[in-house]
Design a protein around this nucleic acid. Structure first.
Lengths: 152, 152
DNA sequence: ATACGTGCAAAGTATTTGCAAACGG
DNA sequence: CCGTTTGCAAATACTTTGCACGTAT
């Protein structure tokens, strides 16, 4: 029998885990905070602050754009979420679920489509490069750009 | 005897090459254009538009910020320069000299220092990943973040 | 009750655009 | 000349900050 995902056996969702880690760190569960966390948990790829705000407002939530930015800041600081920069002027964010979920992004220059990808060999080489860099490397961002299958 | 760099045997500097490619493409040699190109050629790593503008103005040049952006746009479009995005809100640019010069960047989260690095094994793996991606990959951006030797 | 969290508006920063004047070929 | 290039100012886009009020604990 194959385990289909990490949510088996009572392991919390990212949303639950995030809220509980924040509580442990002394943060309260404000409305904006809960909404943004839920929203992030429902995404399967990175999203920008404005996009999150627009969606939540469209759902009838009364929530300020500044609060979205503030929640994203806290999540990033606590390493519950991470910044993703694709080179257009927008900073995107995504939930950090676990090491197994580690991935990067490939962007279509034409239609803007964003897809995640993962590669073990790439990670291994990066680890080597990082080791020999002289830096205490905290993370890496890899972005591939090109034309997706539909656009080329 | 070892050849020390690519400028031996009458091969033009990047600055000369850029101006001549632009001329061939029908562009004129305006003052702002020449200044920005010279400035870029003198850098050994990426620089932002505001930084270029600030420096040129400090040297007594009368040049508009908008012109800097416009020159950088043209250079990027003609693939004579490339955008570098390090994840702070600033888009940086650098001269594209030749394949041998291909490199990536490692940034110190603490002091902001930016260093270039290159790795053949990394490029080889990236080429493989790109091949299997289903995209016609035009380029990739790799940024490592961490604490540099002085800061950690 | 008392901080922390939030919404709103204003400010800040980077980049782009409109336009008339300057300039290159 | 005549169309490109430029400087300046205004506009845009994203993000951050200040502040009074709301709310979780």
């Amino acid at each position: 029998m194959i385990l289909e995902n990490r949510y088996h056996f009572g392991v919390a969702t990212w949303s639950e885990q995030a809220l509980s880690e924040l509580r442990a760190a002394g943060y309260r569960r404000g409305l904006a905070r809960a909404r943004v966390i839920d929203f992030l948990d429902a995404q399967d790829c990175c999203v920008g602050a404005q996009e999150i705000h627009r969606e939540l407002v469209a759902r009838g939530e009364r929530i300020g754009l500044a609060s979205v930015y503030r929640v994203l800041d806290v999540l990033t600081e606590k390493r519950l979420a991470q910044r993703v920069d694709l080179g257009d002027g927008v900073t995107r964010f995504e939930a950090v679920r676990d090491e197994v979920d580690h991935h990067h992004h490939i962007v279509c220059d034409d239609c803007g489509r964003i897809e995640p990808f993962a590669d073990q060999r790439l990670e291994r080489v990066l680890r080597d490069v990082e080791k020999s860099s002289g830096y205490a490397v905290a993370g890496h961002d890899i972005v591939l750009r090109g034309a997706c299958s539909s656009c080329r």
